[in-house]
Amino acid sequence: MAYDTEKKLEDLILRAVRQVLAEQLPAKRRLYVVFADAFDCRCVNFLRSLSPADDVTVLVDEIQAEQVRCDIEQACPFASVVLTSQARSLPLTDSLTVYPVASRDFVVKAALGLADTFAARWLARCFAAGSAVHLQLSGLARFTGREPAAYVGQILGYYRKLLEYGITIGPQFPDRKTGEQPVPQAAPVKGTTPVVACQDKVLTAADLYPYDKGTVLLVGEHTVVTSFAREAALSRGIEIRRT
């Protein structure tokens, strides 16, 4: 009888210790990866950049699953692969959804609130749940420079609308603790001209690091300046001025 009592007490102590240790470990953030377009090398490169610090779930449709499952498992072995048909039960609270590649069609539909594809419907679910969404800058379609100015302005207007929705756009997704996009700690470029013309169509915080304090950065009328870029410019004494 004494042995049984001692054993039960030992079990209770071990259970309490495990619970305390589990509570001390930082909870993993739910990170969902959605492919709005065809799976390509940009998707693989993004998956390789992920860390086990996040609870990564990759959402693929049934047709994609047979073709890309092996690539996903090799690029990100700790990720879970879930079919889009089973995604409705996934929790969105305190999660982050990343679109590694997003076509211009997806951007337009997202800005207009059209939900005729899984990627667009998932975005609407994120909005409804108040969860964070990020578009990788490297996965956005680039302008060739030959498009009519009116067309470029219209497309950039859709990007601005996504920024107004609270979607972040940049080379890296927001940090799990601060919510801000991490930026590389590059050394300032010596001899930088105080007034610099920037031709980028989307200006992020990472683009500001080559410039010294006091630099005036001239951007085009239709350049999208992210909120993080504005905050970074203000804190670093860089003026962003539209031409």
Rank of each mutant, 00 (worst) to 15 (best):
Y211A: 00
G145W: 04
L47C: 01
T97A: 11
T97H: 11
R125T: 02
C126Y: 00
D116V: 13
A205P: 05
D4L: 10
Q74V: 12
A229W: 08
K161M: 03
G130S: 03
G166R: 05
S51K: 10
A232V: 01
Q136W: 09
L47P: 02
K201H: 13
I240P: 06
V68Q: 08
E239L: 13
L156N: 13
R121E: 07
A149I: 11
Y158W: 12
K190L: 11
G130I: 00
T204V: 01
C76R: 10
A22W: 06
R242P: 06
A128T: 02
F173G: 07
L92S: 04
D116I: 02
A65L: 12
A16P: 05
T5G: 15
L50E: 05
R69Q: 15
A102S: 07
I63S: 15
V202G: 02
A233Q: 00
R230T: 08
P148E: 10
Y151V: 06
L123K: 00
E221C: 15
C41L: 08
A124Y: 04
T57P: 03
S95R: 04
A75I: 03
Y158K: 09
A187S: 07
L114E: 10
A87N: 07
A53Y: 00
G170W: 09
A128P: 06
R230Q: 12
L135P: 11
T97N: 01
H134A: 00
I155G: 05
